[in-house]
Computed example of a mutant assay.
Amino acid sequence: MPHPLDSAYLPHLAYDSVVFGFSGEKLKILILEYHNTGWFALPGGFVGVAEDLDAAVKRGLKERTGLDNIHLEQFHTFGSVQRHRPEVMRTILKESDFAVEKAPWLLERFVSVGYYSLIDYHRVTPRPDALSDSLKWYHVEELPPLLFDHREMVEKALNALRRNLDTMLVGTNMLPERFTIKQLQQVTEAILGDKLHRTSFQRRMLATGLLRRHDKLYTGGSHKAPYLYSFVNKSAGE
């Protein structure tokens, strides 16, 4: 079977993905560990010569998560000359039994386009790629040391997510299709890294026009059962 890096890719262009998931308590990020190195990095990849950039990112995430139709946001392009570390890539390829002579372009300088996404933590069984031993969820505040400028990527992605939080949660599958205000507050607090006042949060969210109220969530006849909500799909004219 041919190695995936034997295929034709654009030189000097890569992408890296900051994949956020909510475990119910903590905000987590998918991190891979390269074969036999103890080196950690964000999942990323390259763009085929006849492939759209967004399509390449979605392809890479589907291969690693099994999920289709993942909502992506492009948040920054990373082009520092300090990213160019050919000795690191040479070691990664060697430990994966891939002859760099087959693809010397991998040792050249790359500009990387950063994307972030929000996905359902509980629906994903992470799948390592051809160069890695593992792909696992890590709490955003307990990440291992990351290669290259990947820690900077995480920080920029998190800041971008926080700036666009209300609109980013709409249309993503980080929450169930129908959820309580408490669940919405929990995921918001995990992303912001801060506790929010319950009444103020509920009032603000209901005032956004982003939520549709449904029947109450009855779990045993309690008269205090909470209402369920879903996001309004404005793109569908709702």
Rank of each mutant, 00 (worst) to 15 (best):
K102Y: 00
H76M: 01
G193W: 15
E108C: 05
F20C: 07
V57A: 08
A8N: 12
E95L: 03
V113M: 02
Y229D: 05
K28M: 07
L165C: 10
L107V: 01
I92Y: 01
G21V: 05
R90C: 01
S200N: 15
I31F: 01
H150G: 05
L30N: 11
A225Y: 07
W137Q: 14
D97F: 06
N233S: 15
H76E: 03
A14F: 02
R213Y: 07
K62T: 00
P2H: 15
F179V: 09
L118G: 11
D68W: 01
S230T: 15
R83L: 05
P43F: 05
R83Q: 06
A56Y: 00
M153L: 15
M168D: 15
N36I: 04
P4S: 09
V154Y: 15
T65K: 02
G60V: 04
N173H: 11
E108N: 13
K94W: 14
A56K: 00
D149I: 08
D68Q: 00
F231E: 01
E33N: 11
D215N: 10
E33Q: 06
V111C: 13
S80I: 03
F40S: 02
D149Q: 14
P126H: 09
N69E: 09
A8R: 13
Q186C: 12
Q74E: 10
A55E: 04
L196T: 07
V232P: 00
G171Q: 03
L196D: 08
V113Y: 02
S96I: 04
G44D: 01
S230L: 05
H71G: 05
S7V: 09
P2S: 07
S112Q: 06
R109W: 09
E73S: 03
T199P: 07
Q185W: 04
G21R: 11
Y15K: 06
